[in-house]
Write a protein that binds this DNA or RNA. Sequence first.
DNA 1: ATTTGTGCAAATCCTTTGCAGATAA
DNA 2: TTATCTGCAAAGGATTTGCACAAAT
Lengths: 123, 123
Amino acid sequence: MRITKQREIILQILREKRSHPTALEIYNMAKEHIHDISLSTVYRTLKDMVEKGEIVELHMEGETKARYDLNLDNHAHFKCRHCGRIFDIEIMFPLKLIGFKVERTDIYIYGICSQCSKKEVLA
Amino acid sequence: MRITKQREIILQILREKRSHPTALEIYNMAKEHIHDISLSTVYRTLKDMVEKGEIVELHMEGETKARYDLNLDNHAHFKCRHCGRIFDIEIMFPLKLIGFKVERTDIYIYGICSQCSKKEVLA
DNA sequence: ATTTGTGCAAATCCTTTGCAGATAA
DNA sequence: TTATCTGCAAAGGATTTGCACAAAT
């Protein structure tokens, strides 16, 4: 895989932004650095990275667009029903399934984040 | 929500088939009972059910189509990299996140199932 | 009678692909 | 050089929507 300015920017965005951006969001951020970058390049690069295991593709409940995450540790994603933000949560739990070979674990948690919990608005 | 034969069949399929079918698979099974059922009705009904919390929508790694699951207990889904089957796994773990209100937890586990593990073919 | 659901076809949204030119090794 | 990468436009696949008719309450 060759090092191009497109790939460097995409990787840099994923490193700096820990907000689990979508391909379109990455594309818009990348455009500020490379004005003629194309959405297909972003999609192609992200797909390559996923196949190489460098990043992980996430699908949150009720969202059609995939999100991308550089953090390869097994960790959980918490999505707040109120503000929509997605948090990385450190949950390490030893997972043993008899006879099963576990290669990766994705945990999705949905609810209300601590900040939104403080607003009495919510049921 | 009115009780129609279309909705009854879709619910029955989800109850009987515990294979986490896609909308298209549900449509094909439903066609055997209602010959002129449409794919849009299947999609519409599934969407309604998800919104009402009656079923859960799953997105497995590398798959574009959504899958649907009637089991509303918090449980995990194990997908075998070799045979592609998706197993329900009973994992109950007490999840406490300080300040966060947890409403639902989805756990996705990827690897090799016990049956496929027995074949020495696999690395 | 009235409201809600359905099938059909078309539209939409997200993602992938073919290709000819550009770029990294 | 030459194999790989890119942008563009077009294609593809999954899901949604508008509408007129059908069915449930």
